[in-house]
Write a protein that binds this DNA or RNA. Structure first.
Lengths: 120, 120
DNA sequence: CCGTATCCTATAGGATACTG
DNA sequence: CAGTATCCTATAGGATACGG
């Protein structure tokens, strides 16, 4: 254990939380909601390739973890607003740092892949 | 598309790279290798709960993406050294930022979960 | 010691159909 | 519109056995 607290044990709640949080859809949804509150189908249209089921599941997970607020507006037909919470907002900068890394280093990674694949 | 480049299309290589990179085991392996080059079974002992198969797969993926260097030392029995590359090192700070977030906000997340679960 | 090969199971997640 | 319910498949990943 170093002074920077890290945790490798199987039952570690941080490890579990990391697994829940660091997935593609969560990151993309929070990014969409960063612009402002949005409705279910608007989010769905932004995320090419997501199924309705996956979107619902991911939104529920985000809501349960306190990263997104869900508000039902009683109209006909019903409308639902999803809004990022302050806690969710605080997760943006780590996410952006990771995204920026992929953006800046994609070329290096692809070069490495070609080198690896040609050594076969 | 905002000025901060992000990409939501299904075929986006950044999106794929993010999915490959942002997993629990990759993050933990890079952290272990941050101390210095290590051997297969040492890494395995650090990561409670990982199977040999998963460790091999993840190490290969890291190697292919240029984040880890694998060196076979011809002895008997054979030894293998895994070493983090400069590219791998550059990924550490985004990872640490994400880990730090889980560490600092675990309490808030757990509170949110209790509130959510009691509204049923 | 460091794997590969095989089998097996659990889970994620797409497609589709239906509802308040 | 915003889901829920069901089915179905693909993939991840553990357990085990064996090999260089």
């Amino acid at each position: 254990m170093t002074q920077q607290p890290t945790c490798f044990s199987a039952g570690c709640p941080n490890r579990a939380l990391f697994s829940e949080i660091a997935d593609k859809w969560s990151m993309m949804i929070l990014h969409v909601l960063d612009e402002g509150p949005q409705r279910f189908n608007y989010i769905k249209r932004q995320l090419e390739g997501i199924s309705q089921k996956s979107l619902t599941q991911t939104l529920r997970k985000l809501e349960r973890n306190g990263l997104v607020h869900r508000e039902v507006i009683a109209s006909s037909p019903v409308a639902v607003r999803y809004e990022i919470t302050p806690l969710g907002r605080s997760l943006q900068s780590p996410f952006r740092a990771l995204y920026r890394w992929t953006y800046e280093n994609l070329g290096a990674v692809e070069t490495a892949r070609q080198a690896y694949d040609q050594r076969l």
